[in-house]
Simulated scan of single mutants.
Amino acid sequence: MNPETSQERGTPVGRRVFLGTLALGAVGVAAGPHLQRGVEAFLGGAAELDPSGLTGLLPNGGGFRYYTVTSSVPHKDEHTYRLTVDGLVDRPGSYTLADLRAMPQTRLVRDVQCVTGWRVPGTPFEGVSLSHLLDAAGVHPSAGAVHFTCFDGAYTESLTLEQARRADVLVALRMQDKDIGHAHGGPVRLYVAPMYFYKSAKWLSGITVTEEVRPGYWEKRGYDVDAWVGRSNGRDDEPTA
């Protein structure tokens, strides 16, 4: 293993720690704006000293907060970013940011729903339809799923091939009408509009076509593989689409 990659990867965190951290933010949201502002001030300071990145996961007055499951994530830009498409395809490829920006772009405006309960209404995402990249690669008849890897070195996700070909699944380059920043999973992230937000993998680096679904990072820790909003994980939220 490349030692630099090993250092960048950091240490993944467990679901219990993840949910326990969320409880603090939930208290602030439920108790009202004054306490919430106090929680946010605390989290802002704690984030400076938090190697796990979990303090960034909590919802705030601006809508939602971001997080990472590792202690650090390398930064990528237009010079260093590459997205690979491989696996059960006829034409494996590697795409730069310029390549992706030159492709037809799709814009979606949907609510973002976290499995922990918070929602951000009417969030715009723009990017390349995942089905466009799959068609360009030439998917083999034996394929049944798509596996996603991320350049944080730890996070993974999967969709069935049918799910991946939906019109509301994007390889997203823009979010909230601006380029996706590093903290939100940029420069490129997955966006799966009708599913809970953990399916929308950040820091996307690889798309591998496989025979079967491979459970992702959080699914190995107890979350549902099929993560439809309102129809999974024991939740009854309103659909986002």
Rank of each mutant, 00 (worst) to 15 (best):
D224T: 12
L159N: 02
K178H: 11
D224L: 06
T208G: 07
L204C: 15
P194I: 10
G230H: 12
Y217R: 02
R166P: 03
T156A: 07
Q176G: 07
V229D: 05
G153C: 09
V209I: 12
E157N: 11
W228P: 00
V213F: 03
P215G: 07
K199G: 01
A164F: 15
A227V: 00
R221K: 14
A172N: 04
S232N: 02
M195F: 14
E211A: 15
G181E: 12
D168P: 09
R221A: 09
G153D: 06
T210K: 10
R231V: 09
E219C: 08
G222I: 05
E211V: 09
G185W: 04
Y155P: 00
Y191P: 04
A193Y: 05
S158T: 15
V192P: 00
G234R: 10
S158Q: 11
W218N: 01
R165F: 08
G186C: 10
G216S: 04
D179T: 11
K202M: 03
G234Q: 14
Y191V: 09
G222N: 12
M175V: 15
G216W: 02
K178A: 11
A172M: 13
L204W: 10
V229L: 13
A164L: 13
Y191T: 03
S158I: 15
T156K: 07
G206L: 14
W218L: 01
Y217K: 02
E219Q: 14
I207G: 02
R231Q: 15
E211L: 10
Y155I: 01
G186M: 03
D226G: 06
I207W: 01
V188A: 01
S200Y: 06
V169P: 00
D224C: 08
L170T: 07
A164N: 10
Y198E: 00
M195G: 04
R189Q: 12
T160P: 09
R165T: 05
A167C: 11
R214A: 14
H184L: 03
D177I: 15
W228T: 08
V169Q: 02
R221C: 08
S158Y: 14
G216P: 04
A227T: 00
K220Y: 10
V171S: 08
E212H: 15
S200C: 07
E162S: 15
Q163N: 12
P215E: 07
T160L: 13
E212A: 15
V213H: 00
A183F: 09
L170R: 05
V229Q: 05
W228L: 10
I180C: 06
S205D: 13
T160E: 12
L161H: 11
V229W: 05
M195D: 13
R166H: 07
A193W: 05
R214L: 14
G185P: 00
K178L: 12
V192H: 04
G206D: 12
T156H: 12
Q163T: 14
F197Y: 13
K199W: 04
D226L: 08
L161E: 10
V171P: 04
E157W: 08
M195H: 14
H182F: 09
S205P: 12
D177G: 14
L190W: 03
A201C: 15
D179Q: 06
K178S: 14
G181F: 11
W203F: 11
T208F: 08
G153Y: 03
I207P: 01
V171H: 06
Y196T: 04
D224S: 14
I207D: 01
L190Y: 01
A164I: 15
Q163W: 06
P194K: 08
A227R: 00
M175L: 13
Q176H: 15
G186H: 04
V171T: 10
P194L: 06
